[in-house]
């Protein structure tokens, strides 16, 4: 299991998720309303935006070219550590991962 901390404006969610699932899967399974994932995790809608906490950014890695394009269209401003949670696959090395959530996705 991989522990994840989602920090939202209204509070913090501590979630245990399976490795090999995506961060979006983990958020949806935990019922985190600040993540929408309208398209279901297919890199189409930019509604699963997260800000990776600085210490984790390097471990999570950069967005690829297709994700970069969609990150230009997120509702809340794109920052250096912005990622789409559907594109982050969880593994044991991300145990303790912390991400901050935009107030709204759409």
């Amino acid at each position: 299991m991989v522990r994840i901390r989602f920090e939202a404006a209204e509070g913090t969610y501590e979630v245990h998720a399976e490795a090999n699932h995506t961060l979006l899967d983990a958020a949806l399974a935990a019922g985190i309303a600040e993540i929408e994932g309208q398209c279901g995790g297919f890199l189409n809608c930019a509604t699963c935006h997260v800000y990776v906490a600085e210490p984790w950014a390097e471990k999570v890695g950069p967005a690829n070219e297709d994700e970069e394009e969609l990150l230009e269209g997120t509702l809340e401003p794109r920052r250096a550590t912005s990622r789409l949670s559907c594109q982050i696959t969880l593994h044991e090395g991300l145990d303790g991962l912390t991400v901050r959530l935009p107030r709204r996705q759409s």
Partner: peptide, 15 residues
């Protein structure tokens, strides 16, 4: 085809 349509329908564009 989809990548040419995406920018107009992203959350920031719709906002």
């Amino acid at each position: 085809l989809r990548r040419t349509l995406n920018p107009a329908f992203m959350p920031a564009s719709v906002a």
